[in-house]
Design a protein around this nucleic acid. Structure first.
Lengths: 228, 228
DNA sequence: ATTAATTGTTACAAGTTTGTGACGATACGT
DNA sequence: ACGTATCGTCACAAACTTGTAACAATTAAT
């Protein structure tokens, strides 16, 4: 849910305010005070979302949006347009250019956060909704349940995601780094040995159902879920 | 899909035409020829949707819209604006006031029906009028009542909608965000923890009837109504 | 106009989950 | 057999999640 958000706004006071709110909401704000500066920053870091002021000195917000939509690398970054009430006539133009949402100033921090959340949610990849199984072990992402031989298996969130990933990628060996990226997320920094602990917790949870040997360790490499 | 639609339009010819088309499409039309009349009708019957003419004698359509958005009871009723001229300035103003869609006259019955269907689908995700039940727990959207083992269960409006959504989507885990979108509405901005509180109020209300464990907590994910 | 309901928000306690270091066990090459 | 690298397991503190009560604000009803 934490995201890198680029804020493009020429008024420093508003910029600071927004940046502060973003931090409070657990996001990582990047600040730019002009279109040029924004484009330059995007060249280096790809943000998850862009808050784009409509009125900017020099190139306007819509120019930036057009530019971003024109390049493959930046085409899919969600954009939320910021606009003063007097500029309402441009709303349609903004949405047509490819803005994902639109907020008129002044806006409350709560509204901003809600819209950010909504936009990110819309873009977020959905967890596959299909039930998966290995032998008599069922895992259903929709109901968030794991059952073996009819009995429910109680798993913590991380163990659930771990098992889900392993089941959907059976037979392949996954290094601890790969597992951290896939199950924890690329941006999370934890020790690699943490994977071992969760693998063990997963095994222990599956043990009563005789599924503890499902996950095999490949010495010096990582872990693998035995295909079948 | 059948809905009660309030049509506010000062020209009797157009009003009749729209009403006829609505009936043909299986809806229940209510007719008003002025803003005042419309508000009076809404005081008695809550329509599922309002078709609101832009130009009205006396108070205009936008006044009605503003008025409706100002009251809790009517805040969530979808509004489709009707306008004689395709003037973009008005269009923006209309959408800004909270209209859900906008049609310029003249329009074909097919276009009108399509927009009505779209708006209803968007706004009222699953509020069908069919009675639903889980075990011996009955919920009737039409009479807005819940009963268990023959006894009435008293629920507030929000708890009712929440239970209704859960019952119509059993077995699946719903994140707080999803519940806010589905039960509160996409456009409502409230804290996620609010969901917890209402879940708890719902459980407490169901407790006397031994249905309190119906709703399960899925730690780190959301809530789920146990299927059966 | 008062009263009662309903709703959103916050604070706090209780319970879970998670990351990490420690330490023993195990596998592997020599 | 020996030493070393790697892994399994445990305990524990910190962080997070959730249930619950209390409170304020709003809305409906009398």
């Amino acid at each position: 849910m934490a995201a890198t958000v680029l804020v493009v706004e020429d008024e420093p006071a508003i910029l600071d305010l927004i940046a502060y709110n973003l931090k409070q909401a657990g996001h990582e704000p990047l600040c730019a005070e002009s279109a040029e500066q924004a484009l330059q920053m995007i060249a280096n870091v790809l943000p998850d979302l862009i808050l784009l002021d409509w009125m900017l000195p020099g190139a306007s917000g819509i120019d930036v949006a057009k530019r971003l939509r024109g390049h493959e690398r930046t085409r899919n970054i969600p954009i939320i347009m910021l606009s003063a009430r007097s500029e309402e006539g441009d709303k349609l133009l903004g949405l047509e250019t490819g803005a994902d949402d639109y907020i008129t100033k002044p806006f409350s921090p709560r509204e901003l956060n809600a819209r950010i959340k909504a936009v990110l949610r819309r873009r977020a990849p959905q967890m596959t909704s299909d039930e998966v199984r290995v032998g008599d072990l069922h895992l259903d992402p929709a109901s968030h349940r794991v059952s073996a031989h009819g009995n429910d298996v109680k798993l913590g969130p991380t163990e659930f995601r771990l098992l889900h990933f392993l089941i959907t990628h059976p037979g392949r060996v996954h290094s601890r780094t790969q597992l951290l990226d896939q199950v924890w997320g690329d941006h999370v920094f934890v020790e690699e040995r943490t994977v071992d602990v969760h693998i063990q917790r997963l095994r222990k949870a599956l043990e009563p159902e005789r599924f503890d040997s499902l996950i095999q360790t490949v010495r010096g490499t990582g872990y693998r879920l035995s295909a079948s």
